[in-house]
């Protein structure tokens, strides 16, 4: 599945909810089901510090694809992380680097990415792309 296809799938899933409450309920459930990051990576080295919620992100390269795992101390942040991981994990570094994510805006959760939310998500996307950049360089 390409990044675009994964985005499309998420948009479809969210399209059944027109009420904010259902949308956030769905997000919270996804947050709860997100596999936890391996405790060895839940350290300051892998911490992306927002002003309010914390995000831990780890990535490795496997068969030319970037595998992401992440966690957060806030469940809504975690829900959004799970979406970002669905979209980016298992993709090639170059595809991640060139992706222009639109799904968060389209499912009506754009406010979560506004800088004043201070939840570390904007930094998380930057960090995911940075990992992709590093892996791309390593691949030569």
């Amino acid at each position: 599945m390409t990044i675009k296809e994964a985005e499309k799938q998420i948009i479809q899933e969210f399209s059944v909810y027109d009420d904010w409450l259902d949308k956030y309920n769905f997000l919270v459930e996804m947050g709860k089901s997100l596999p936890m990051i391996d405790p060895e990576y839940q350290t300051d080295t892998y911490l992306i510090s927002g002003c309010q919620s914390k995000v831990w992100l780890y990535a490795r390269l496997s068969d030319g694809k970037v595998i992401f795992t992440a966690d957060s101390d806030a469940i809504i942040t975690k829900g959004i992380i799970s979406l970002l991981i669905r979209v980016f994990s298992g993709q090639a570094p170059d595809d991640i680097l060139h992706a222009d994510l639109t799904f968060i805006d389209q499912i009506g959760l754009k406010e979560n990415l506004s800088p004043n939310r201070s939840n570390g998500l904007v930094s998380m996307i930057k960090q995911m792309k940075l990992y992709a950049q590093v892996f791309k360089m390593k691949q030569g």
Binding site: Y24, V28, Q52, S53, D73, A74, I75, I76, T77, N119
Partner: peptide, 9 residues
């Protein structure tokens, strides 16, 4: 519960 989550909801 994280305070951020309460504030968001």
């Amino acid at each position: 519960i994280h305070p951020y989550d309460v504030g968001m909801i």
